[in-house]
């Protein structure tokens, strides 16, 4: 089982002071405290880092970190936390409306794809005509962790679809993408206003990845019949 992708994102409504150059300029030029607001199409800074397979975004209403094929979970977590710490020193966002960690886990199989579908049917579904006739299966669950919510998806997948659906922007190494595998897509988020603190983000990300790992491992164990 491997962590294939990790995304950490925060959303905020108040423009971070460090990024609010339009308001600063307006206030400076008019001599009065004023709010210039946002531009209609938003203003985003996007950075693609090939060496570390990262996609970074800093915007007026959201900041996101995305890493693909990390060396380990800890490397992914550390890079993510370092990114937010570094940007926070500059952007200085205050209240955040939402924080989320989405992780994508894969367990590689060397069997044919159709056999993996059959395995999913056998382990997770009842033998009813609707399921038996389906050319493919997957399922979604909604889970909870206190006041945090989780969207959980799992199913069999092939390389082609992973590349098309999950890797549209961030750099990745195609040769390291498995041909046939089972996936767990774990989207862990908190929709609640919170004062941003690096320590809070650090704890949230660690907790989210640990929980996702446990859920993914549980799923893959059922599938492998362990």
């Amino acid at each position: 089982m491997k962590l294939f992708k990790l995304i950490v994102a925060i959303n905020y409504t108040e423009i971070p002071s460090g990024l609010n150059y339009r308001t600063k300029l307006l206030t400076l030029l008019t001599g009065k405290e004023q709010n210039a607001g946002k531009l209609p199409f938003g203003e985003n800074f996007e950075l693609r880092v090939n060496g570390k397979k990262l996609f970074l975004n800093v915007g007026l209403d959201k900041t996101g970190f995305e890493i693909n094929q990390p060396e380990s979970e800890q490397v992914a977590i550390n890079e993510g936390i370092s990114f937010f710490k570094k940007v926070y020193n500059f952007a200085q966002w205050k209240t955040i409306d939402r924080i989320g960690v989405r992780s994508f886990w894969v367990d590689t199989y060397s069997i044919e794809f159709s056999k993996l579908i059959e395995l999913y049917k056998e382990k997770f579904f009842r033998e009813v005509p609707l399921i038996s006739r389906a050319p493919d299966v997957a399922f979604a669950l909604t889970l909870k962790d206190g006041n945090r919510k989780i969207n959980f998806n799992t199913g069999p997948m092939q390389k082609k679809q992973l590349v098309e659906v999950f890797l549209p922007q961030a750099p990745f190494e195609e040769k390291d993408v498995p041909e046939t595998f089972a996936f767990v897509d774990h989207d862990y988020y908190l929709l609640e206003k919170n004062e941003y603190k690096n320590a809070f983000l650090e704890k949230f990300v660690n907790n989210a990845v640990l929980l996702a790992k446990t859920k993914a491992s549980e799923t893959f164990k059922i599938l492998r019949g362990k």
Partner: peptide
């Protein structure tokens, strides 16, 4: 899912 792929819209 709440967090879409890619994490952010390209603007």
């Amino acid at each position: 899912n709440e967090i879409s792929f890619p994490a952010v819209l390209s603007e």
